[in-house]
Design a protein around this nucleic acid. Structure first.
Length: 372
RNA sequence: GCGAAUAUGGUGAAGUGGUUAACACGCCGGAUUGUGGCUCCGGUAUGCGUGGGUUCGAUCCCCACUAUUCGCC
């Protein structure tokens, strides 16, 4: 079956919405934060640890799995869920972001995108049809349309060509999509231009996807611009389909996204900064490498319910991180992922109580205060 | 006891008679938003063993001392 979004209630003062998303692998509440597991693993975390932090949907990446180990192999294994033994829903990104991060503008044509493999330098060519085909084989719950994620800034003229091409790619992908158990999402682009966001959203919605995402954010623009991009997009999306803001974000961005009507978020930040020794806290991000934690025998957050905070001190984690011990990154990944998931849990409660604006104010003032 | 070599930041080490003493590691900070990267970016020796001397000028030349290392008795 296709995913189904149920809107349950809305915040009175913002566009924030509380709902559920039904998938083949369970029903989950939204807003939701989805940890990123590019290569069929949320880096350093086991599936059990993901369940422990209350993860729902997780991500995997078409481009990366295509190169290694290959879509056929995963299909032979019985699909992504069986291959990686994750029992919750999985969403696969289409490789569109790798157009942004790995390909050069001149390599983008109407037909598809030319890549140089980051593994061995070989020449690759990814088309919308191929991306969907790969995702069909991976058998994820949700496949993403293959889009161009343009850098920031580009001219209105370039962006217009780009969204038109992305819409044509979306249609091509939809036409070949053949996995009845897999949903397919369309992606709104358009940069910071309201008219193009509108056009992209309206045209994409006409193609009738199972859900819609907002792409092209957090590619170098400032925060206010990003928030506008979100507003210009959700404004034109149907209420009865789930909205997914791709690649966002940090805690404040998630709150700002929810306020603008977004249901799903994904971001590598929680696990990446963990591997680099950083932890989210209600009082802002902290760097465990800092000398001041050397003899700090308290948990990262006293009242956090995660495995890390229930069992380990900052001094110990600092020691692990400065000694390059893998457990340090693991413990921080657990905490940071739990932190963002707890954040969206709190936001759901705030929506039900019509207190989203109060929640934002309280969270931001604490998060940005410097009394760490 | 005799002979020789070496003495540069937390460590390993480059280097020059004349403005800011290379580099690496460590250490101290910072970055990180649909994850190529265990990554990236900053800062970190008022000082070149100690005391004299030569010189306009010495970390770099000379002498003594001290320390360390290696040989020999």
């Amino acid at each position: 079956m296709k995913v189904k979004y149920n809107l349950i209630c809305k915040d009175n003062n913002t566009l924030a919405r509380y709902g559920t998303i039904e998938t083949n692998h369970g029903t989950y509440e939204t807003p939701m934060f989805m940890p990123v597991g590019t290569k069929a693993t949320v880096k350093l975390l086991t599936p059990d640890e993901l369940y422990d932090v209350h993860a729902g949907i997780i991500l995997a990446n078409t481009y990366h799995l295509w190169l290694r180990p290959g879509a056929e192999l995963i299909n032979k294994a019985g699909g992504l869920h069986k291959f990686m033994n994750y029992k919750g829903p999985i969403l696969t990104d289409s490789g569109g972001f790798q157009v942004f991060s790995l390909a050069k503008p001149k390599d983008i044509t109407e037909e598809g995108v030319k890549f140089k493999s980051h593994i061995d330098g070989s020449n690759l060519f990814l088309t919308p049809e191929e991306s969907i085909h790969i995702q069909n084989l991976l058998d994820s719950d949700i496949a993403m349309s293959f889009d161009e994620c343009p850098p920031y800034p580009v001219t209105h003229e370039y962006m217009e060509e780009s969204i038109e091409r992305t819409i044509r790619w979306a249609k091509r992908g939809k036409d070949v999509h053949s996995n009845a158990n897999q949903s397919l999402f369309g992606i709104v682009q358009g940069g910071e231009f309201e008219d193009l966001r509108k056009k992209s959203a309206v045209e994409t919605v006409k193609l009738d996807f199972d859900g819609y995402s907002i792409g092209g954010t957090s590619v170098g623009e400032d925060k206010e611009t990003m928030y506008k991009m979100i507003e210009y997009s959700t404004k034109y999306l149907p209420e009865d389909k789930v909205r997914y803001l791709m690649g966002v974000g940090d805690p404040i961005d998630i709150i700002e996204g929810v306020i603008r009507g977004v249901d799903l978020f994904d971001c590598v930040l929680s696990t990446r900064i963990a591997r680099h020794g950083n932890a989210f806290t209600r009082n802002g991000k902290i760097n465990l490498r800092n000398l001041k934690y050397r003899e700090d025998f308290t948990p990262i957050e006293m009242d956090c319910d995660c495995y890390t905070c229930r069992n380990f001190t900052k001094a110990y984690i600092r020691h692990l991180i400065t000694s390059d011990e893998l457990l340090g990154g693991r413990l921080l990944s657990i905490h940071n992922t739990r932190f963002l998931i707890k954040l969206v849990e709190d936001l759901r409660e705030a929506i039900k109580e019509n207190k989203v604006l109060e929640y934002r104010e309280k969270f931001i003032s604490q998060y940005t205060s410097k009394n760490k």
